[in-house]
């Protein structure tokens, strides 16, 4: 009985997994088809003769090297900055007593309630006034802190037993050293989570980079992707190649880093 249940469970889970990955398989399959095959209705996912040169064509059609360099540079700096700013602010909001704490925290949470699209023009005007258009500063600085990450870090710090703080204070350990050497490492799962969100958010953003930069030297990969779908000569097979190229780095990074954020009991610190 329990064995039958286990088999059934496995079958269902595998079926679900296949369904989940199907769009990716389809993307890979289509990216290897000729244009004719790609635009012919068919049940075939993979073509008979894979057109590997589609990837060469796609990579040559746009300067992906520059795009990837920019994207990664921006994403890594943003990730690092978000992690640091939210660690610091999260700790302060969770453990320090200072006037205006509740009000400030509420205002920070309020910025989560307004959609990004609304802030686009004011922010663009601002970076123009600052002379930041078409610079890395424009792509990076506005995203170096966000409310959600601060909220998550605050929750994580609040989850730590109060005794730790008292013990450390008695030992004469200041807040900064305590944060850096004791509390920070204790909330590592949350740090990894916050970093992951920050990285994905930065890597996948499209509208802001498009508006904030103009020259090809400052373009990011998501903008590169629009060049394949917006043009009148849209070709499904090359479009799928471009999508695969854009998706590949995050997937690779995820496979490389998954043990950190999955094994470290990701959700442990997330509590209302």
């Amino acid at each position: 009985m329990r064995r039958a249940e286990a088999v059934l469970r496995m079958v269902l889970l595998v079926a679900g997994a296949v369904a989940t990955t199907f769009p990716f398989l389809w993307m890979l399959g289509t990216s290897l088809k000729t244009l004719m095959e790609a635009t012919t209705p068919s049940l075939r996912v993979f073509p008979e003769t894979p057109q590997w040169h589609n990837y060469v064509d796609t990579l040559q059609a746009a300067p992906f090297g520059t795009y990837f360099f920019n994207t990664f540079l921006v994403a890594f700096i943003v990730t690092g900055s978000v992690t640091v700013t939210s660690l610091m602010a999260g700790y302060a909001f969770a453990r320090l007593r200072f006037p205006g704490r509740t009000v400030l925290f509420s205002i920070i949470l309020a910025t989560m309630m307004i959609p990004f699209e609304v802030t686009l023009i004011p922010n663009f005007v601002l970076i123009t006034r600052l002379g930041w258009t078409d610079t890395y500063a424009a792509l990076i600085i506005p995203w170096c802190a966000n409310a959600f990450s601060i909220f998550l870090m605050r929750q994580a710090f609040r989850g730590l037993p109060v005794d730790f703080y008292d013990a450390a204070t008695i030992d004469g350990c200041g807040h900064l050293r305590f944060l850096a050497w004791i509390a920070g490492p204790l909330v590592k799962p949350m740090v990894v989570t916050v970093a992951l969100f920050a990285f994905l958010g930065s890597y996948n953003s499209l509208v802001w980079p498009l508006v904030a930069t103009s020259t090809p030297e400052m373009r990011v990969v998501q903008v590169g992707l629009t060049m394949f779908s917006g043009a009148e000569g849209v070709q499904f097979n090359l479009l799928m190649c471009a999508a695969a190229i854009v998706i590949a780095p995050t997937v690779a990074l995820y496979f490389a880093a998954q043990r950190y954020f999955l094994e470290s009991a990701l959700g442990a610190g997330i509590k209302g």
Binding site: I121, V125, T128, L210, S214
Partner: peptide, 10 residues
Amino acid sequence: RKVSSSIQAR
């Protein structure tokens, strides 16, 4: 959108 933003930014 880019031009509209740029008009706002002068």
